[in-house]
């Protein structure tokens, strides 16, 4: 059963940075979010060193084959509710590497592997961008913990139908 993020989480979110083979661009934007110009620390966001202390995993990168077992272990170590913010085009869908031989290719595929291993992700928000902008990361985090509502609705378009 999925667990709702508790209200208390809205005041102080501890984040763990999980780089799964990203090119560093999203990673430096994450650091940028925490440093004076954006200063997400004023919202109580704190970067922690261990997944065991974390409320949210900031996942970047297309999940390479080499990091996969380590990523699964790190996410397994997180306490419930297990929240993930998938940051950047690679984490969202594999990005430019989506069909390369040495990557898994994005969080949705990782989620399946996690579910096979009995690791449940309670909530995930995708932040696209290459790299994701710092403003987008802060917004994504706010949506994830329920401070803001998503602005776009889910829409499925089939190929060959509709405009275009």
């Amino acid at each position: 059963m999925r667990v709702r993020p508790p209200k208390a989480l809205r005041k102080s979110i501890w984040v763990f940075h999980l780089n799964t083979g990203s090119c560093n661009a999203c990673d430096i934007e994450i650091l940028d979010v925490l440093t004076p110009f954006m200063d997400a620390e004023r919202f109580g966001v704190k970067l922690v060193a261990s997944p065991r202390h974390a409320d949210v995993a900031l996942l970047t990168g297309p999940i390479t084959r080499e990091t996969l077992p380590k990523v699964v272990n790190a996410l397994k170590a997180m306490p419930r509710p297990r929240l993930v913010l998938a940051i950047g085009a690679c984490a969202v869908g594999g990005g430019i590497w989506h069909d390369s031989y040495s990557v898994i290719g994005g969080f949705p595929r990782l989620k399946k592997i996690l579910e096979e291993n009995g690791v449940i992700i309670d909530r995930v928000v995708y932040v696209p961008g290459c790299p994701a902008r710092p403003e987008a990361i802060i917004y994504g985090l706010a949506v994830l913990i329920g401070l803001l509502k998503k602005k776009v609705k889910k829409e499925v378009k089939e190929a060959g139908k509709g405009e275009g």
Binding site: G21, T64, E66, I96, S100, Y101, S102, V103
Partner: peptide, 24 residues
């Protein structure tokens, strides 16, 4: 080599041409 993404192979794949490899 945890971040090995197979870039050199991708550049030879039909998905890319001279200009697209620039972005890769």
């Amino acid at each position: 080599f945890h971040v090995h993404r197979g870039i050199e192979k991708l550049a030879e794949s039909p998905r890319f041409d001279y200009n697209k490899v620039t972005f890769l």
